[in-house]
Structure formats: C-alpha cells, structure tokens
C-alpha cells in the first residue's frame, strides 16, 4: 500500500543530503518497524511522507495505494489515508483539543464527500476512544497538547489516529517518554486498529514497544538508507548488540 522507491531527500535551503535512496514497501495488514541510530533520517522520512516543508526530494517516488504522495498537499495526503504520529507533537495554545479533533474529522469527511458528523455522534465517539486511552475530559477541553506531559501528548496522538482511522499509520517514536502502563495503552490502541486493510510503519529505538506490537518486518536505517531488513528477530539483535555490526557491515567500502 505504501511504496517508497529510491527516495533521495536533501534539506530545502542547504545542499545537505539526508535520505540517500530509501526503498520500502508496506503491504496492507502488515506492521513494519524502522530502527536506527539517532540522526539516521527516520523522522525526515516520516516528515517527507506527510508533506512538511523544508525538504527537497531530489529523486525517487512515494505512493499510497498507487497515488503519488509527493505531489499532494499535506491535507490531501491525510485525506488519502496517511497519518503521522509526531515524534514531537505540536502545542497549539488557543485551539481546544475537542475543536481540533472535530475540525480534523469533519475536514476529512468533507474531502471524502461524506457528511459532517453530528455533534452528538462526535462527542460519543471521542469519549469512547478517549476512555480507552485514559484521556480524561479535562485533557479534551484543554488547548491542543498545551501543558500536556510528554506521555499525554503521545496518547493524544493515538487518540487522533483512532478518530481519523487512517489507512497508513506512521508512528515516530510514539513510545519514547511513555511509562510502562502508558506504553501498554498506546500499544492496545494501535493493536485495536490493526486490520487487513491498514498498514503501519513504527519508528522506535526499543524492543519494548515491539513486544506489544509485533512487527512483521524490521528495517534498520543508517545514514539515510535502509541497511538491513529482517523479521522480528532483527529488533532483538539490535536490543542486545546495538547497531555497530549491522551498520559497519553496510558501510560502503
């Protein structure tokens, strides 16, 4: 469903290459994990897919269900079914979390030619999804992510994902900053969404999250490339041995 082919990306305002030929294919119903050292380009990949400004694609393609992602505006990518749970969720003082969620849900419904959700139906749905993630009424009322703890922000990302029901979910270090219980809540939230038609790309540094969300495929990214791809065991190998050998072996001669 998500096809990335030989993607090269540099910074928009400087001649610094970040992604140097990423190729990746996520089939519907599968969970792919990406691991890799700090600064290897994992977040850059997720931002480029979501359409953040400041990057320039110099070569390669990325499609979602055959549609060219790179030619779309960020909101069009979202309407096409792409969702990114941010590594650093953004605070928006002055916009209520509830207003934000409703605006997003209804914008996507409109984009699909569906009717907007009634306030009653919306409220019921939010309350139900929020309860599952232990997000209380107060957090729904407060401005988006403003003054939320690190863990609360991450749970709020998963709430958005649950409300929007995207086809392709990218989670960028959603586990970092979570306590053990919150990690379980987030994993349950993700697992509840796992289905035949939906793909996941889970960026993480830790095996712990992958204990809860069993990946089908694990990729190791280093210096802007996928340097190794394997099964769930690859994550265990990283956990015990670090990236050293894997990355060294991939180093071009």
């Amino acid at each position: 469903m998500l096809e990335i082919n030989d993607l090269h990306v540099k910074l928009g305002d400087e001649d610094i290459a970040i992604l140097k030929g990423v190729t990746l294919s996520v089939a519907p119903g599968t969970v792919h994990a990406i691991m890799g050292p700090n600064g290897s380009g994992k977040s850059t990949l997720s931002y480029v897919l979501a359409g953040r400004e400041g990057y320039e694609v110099t070569a390669g393609t990325a499609t979602l269900e055959g549609a060219d992602l790179l030619g779309m505006e960020p909101e069009e990518r979202a309407a096409a079914g792409l969702f990114l749970a941010f590594q650093y969720p953004v605070e928006i003082p002055g916009v209520g979390n509830m207003t934000f969620l409703r605006t997003a849900v209804n914008a996507q419904r409109r984009a699909k030619g569906e009717e907007e959700m009634s306030s009653g139906a919306f409220l019921k749905l939010v309350r139900e999804k929020a309860a599952g993630l232990k997000i209380d009424a107060d957090m729904l009322k407060r401005p988006v992510n403003t003054g939320f703890s690190g863990g609360e922000k991450k749970r709020n990302e998963i709430l958005q994902m649950a409300m929007l029901e995207p086809k392709m979910c990218i989670l960028d270090e959603t586990d970092s900053g979570l306590d053990v219980d919150a990690m379980k809540l987030v994993a349950d939230g993700v697992n509840a969404l796992r289905s035949e038609g939906r793909g996941f790309l889970v960026i993480t540094h830790y095996q712990r999250l992958l204990d809860h969300i069993r990946p089908d495929v694990v990729h190791i990214m280093s210096d802007g490339r996928i340097v190794k791809t394997g099964g769930p065991d690859l994550a265990l190998e990283v956990e015990t041995q670090g990236y050293g050998d894997i990355v060294d072996a991939a180093e071009p001669a």
Binding site: A50, G51, R52, E53, E73, P74, E75, R77, A78, A79, F83, L84, F86, P89, V90, I92, P93, G94, V95, T99, F100, T103, A104, A107, Q108, A111, P143, Q160, L164
Partner: peptide, 23 residues
C-alpha cells in the same frame, strides 16, 4: 509548524490558518 500539524490532520490550509488566527 502549527500550520503543518493541523494540515497533516487533514485540515485545509485556509481553515487551519483561520483556526490559528482565532486562537
């Protein structure tokens, strides 16, 4: 960054701008 965050949730640019101005 706030504008991108809203747009990444499917909110069209105009509407996202409007929300941020009201905020």
């Amino acid at each position: 960054v706030q504008l991108f965050y809203l747009r990444s949730r499917g909110v069209p640019e105009n509407e996202a701008q409007g929300l941020l101005v009201l905020a």
